Measured scan of single mutants.
Amino acid sequence: MKTQEELTEIVRDHFSDMGEAATLYVQVYESSLESLVGGVIFEDGRHYTFVYENEDLVYE
């Protein structure tokens, strides 16, 4: 099982292909040891929320 830090790095790496991230945040109260819930805000103003669970990243 991966730590939240490892899950955060996986998510950060995925979003790095989409541009320069200004902020990546984790909603600790919705996350667990198995999943990471949060969002990313890019330098150009785009904002996505995400759920990373079971090696699957879903974002909108």
Rank of each mutant, 00 (worst) to 15 (best):
M1E: 07
M1T: 12
M1Q: 11
M1V: 12
M1F: 13
M1K: 13
K2Q: 07
K2D: 05
K2W: 08
K2Y: 07
K2G: 04
K2P: 03
K2V: 07
K2F: 07
T3Y: 05
T3F: 05
T3H: 03
T3C: 14
T3K: 04
T3P: 04
T3N: 06
Q4F: 14
Q4E: 10
Q4A: 08
Q4W: 11
Q4I: 14
E5Q: 10
E5A: 12
E5P: 04
E5Y: 08
E6S: 04
E6F: 08
E6L: 07
E6G: 03
L7W: 06
L7P: 02
L7S: 01
T8P: 02
T8I: 15
E9K: 13
E9W: 09
E9H: 09
E9T: 11
I10C: 11
I10K: 05
V11G: 02
V11I: 10
V11S: 02
R12C: 14
R12V: 05
R12M: 12
R12D: 02
D13T: 13
D13Q: 15
D13Y: 10
H14E: 02
H14W: 14
H14S: 06
H14A: 11
F15N: 01
F15S: 01
S16D: 06
S16L: 12
S16V: 07
S16M: 12
D17T: 15
D17S: 15
D17R: 14
D17V: 14
M18Y: 09
M18R: 06
M18H: 06
G19D: 04
G19V: 05
E20A: 12
E20L: 11
A21G: 14
A22C: 14
A22L: 15
A22V: 14
A22I: 14
A22K: 12
T23I: 14
T23V: 13
T23M: 12
T23Y: 14
T23G: 05
L24A: 03
L24N: 01
L24C: 09
L24I: 15
L24K: 01
L24V: 13
L24D: 02
Y25I: 09
Y25R: 03
Y25P: 03
Y25K: 04
Y25M: 05
V26N: 01
Q27S: 14
Q27M: 13
Q27G: 05
Q27V: 14
V28I: 11
V28C: 14
V28E: 10
V28T: 09
V28Y: 14
V28M: 11
Y29Q: 04
Y29G: 05
E30A: 08
E30H: 11
E30Y: 12
E30F: 11
E30Q: 09
E30S: 13
E30T: 09
S31Y: 11
S31H: 08
S31L: 07
S31P: 14
S32I: 09
S32K: 10
S32A: 11
S32W: 09
S32R: 06
S32C: 13
L33A: 11
L33G: 10
L33H: 10
L33K: 13
L33W: 08
L33S: 14
L33E: 09
E34C: 13
E34F: 06
E34V: 09
E34L: 07
S35D: 03
S35G: 06
S35V: 14
S35E: 03
S35R: 15
S35M: 15
L36Y: 06
L36V: 07
L36H: 01
V37I: 12
V37A: 08
V37G: 03
G38T: 04
G38K: 00
G38M: 08
G38A: 05
G39F: 15
G39Q: 10
G39I: 14
V40T: 02
V40Y: 02
V40L: 05
I41W: 11
I41M: 07
I41R: 04
F42D: 00
F42V: 01
F42K: 00
F42E: 00
F42C: 07
F42Q: 00
E43F: 07
E43N: 09
D44G: 02
D44K: 00
G45D: 01
G45P: 03
G45E: 03
G45H: 01
R46L: 05
R46I: 04
R46S: 06
R46D: 02
H47M: 06
H47C: 12
H47Q: 06
Y48F: 12
Y48A: 00
Y48Q: 00
T49K: 10
F50N: 00
F50Y: 04
F50K: 00
F50T: 00
F50I: 02
F50R: 00
F50V: 02
V51I: 12
V51M: 06
V51D: 00
V51S: 07
V51Y: 09
V51R: 11
Y52V: 04
Y52S: 00
Y52N: 00
Y52K: 00
E53I: 13
E53H: 10
E53S: 13
N54R: 07
N54D: 06
N54Q: 07
N54H: 09
E55V: 05
E55L: 09
D56G: 13
L57M: 07
V58K: 13
V58T: 13
V58N: 07
V58H: 12
Y59C: 10
Y59W: 13
Y59P: 02
E60P: 04
E60C: 15
